[in-house]
């Protein structure tokens, strides 16, 4: 058994995999306990994290979670509204150079974008600025990934559609839009992870709008590591849940195989 788990590419049975997961979970929690005993330690103790979580709950953790989820939902909605048409329009020679140029904006630094949005007369509130920053970030990555998906579609799929007397718009619809909708969801799943990771930064730009980032920022001000760690754990767990839900949404399309990467 031991030889198997240290052999490259060895395939394990499901119960054995579960046992390995349980082992690592216990090991990580055990390490956490051990590493927080003594005078100096890297992480806050489990007890202080639990206490921090309780305090945060009392002080309105749930409304903050809802605020963060709302921010993410708004950013995702607008990013999809911008990115999907842009990516699909990239198949038109007229728009291709512009859209490929937009994809390069992912090298822009966050600070610069935040500054321009903060000074823009079009941005009316702190929440609008937060949404704006996330939409810009999400869109440039979304467009880049979708352009890559479109570029990777085998020529045979276009030929198949054309050989069925489809006009070019029908080819776009069947091969790229409908034919790759599950890929778009997969890209959304990956981009949402980036956005969720940026949450603390973006929410700390305008603290009055609330959100999980605000909780961390406040706890950081008083160097309350237990509360910081508790908020981080909440962000991580909600992130994993969102990831799971989007993954399930992708597999809900009947033509997508579970084994498909």
């Amino acid at each position: 058994m031991f030889k198997k788990i240290i052999t490259p590419f060895e395939v394990m049975k499901a119960p054995h995999n579960m046992a390995l997961i349980a082992f690592w979970l216990v090991a990580v929690i055990g390490f956490w306990y051990l590493s927080t005993t003594g005078q100096k330690h890297l992480l806050p103790s489990p007890q202080s994290v639990l206490t921090g979580l309780g305090e945060e709950y009392q002080e309105g953790l749930v409304p903050h979670i809802m605020s963060s989820l709302s921010l993410c939902a708004q950013a995702t909605f607008w990013a999809l509204l911008v990115s999907l048409p842009l990516a699909y329009l990239s198949t038109l020679p007229l728009f291709r150079p512009v859209i490929q140029g937009i994809s390069k904006f992912r090298y822009l630094p966050l600070t610069g974008i935040t500054f321009y949005l903060a000074t823009s007369p079009l941005i009316s509130s702190g929440r609008a600025m937060q949404v704006g920053v996330l939409v810009i970030f999400m869109s440039v990555y979304f467009v880049t990934s979708l352009l890559s998906v479109i570029a990777d579609i085998p020529e045979e799929e276009f030929d198949h559609a054309r050989s069925l007397k489809m006009n070019r718009w029908e080819v776009l619809w069947h091969v790229i839009i409908r034919g790759r909708i599950d890929y778009a969801i997969e890209i959304l799943r990956q981009n949402l992870a980036i956005v969720w990771m940026m949450l603390v930064t973006v929410e700390s730009i305008v603290m009055s709008a609330g959100g999980l980032g605000t909780i961390i920022k406040n706890a950081d001000r008083y160097a309350n590591h237990g509360r910081i760690f508790a908020a981080q754990l909440v962000i991580l767990l909600i992130g994993i849940l969102l990831d799971y839900l989007l993954s399930e949404l992708r597999y809900s399309f009947p033509y997508v195989n579970r084994t498909q990467k």
């Binding site: 085998p154 799929e157 030929d159 198949h160 054309r162 050989s163 069925l164 091969v175 034919g179």
Partner: peptide
């Protein structure tokens, strides 16, 4: 579209 074309991968619409 006048002449049917079947490639060696037998491509179909995946959706």
């Amino acid at each position: 579209g006048d002449v049917g074309f079947v490639d060696q991968k037998y491509t179909l619409f995946r959706h």
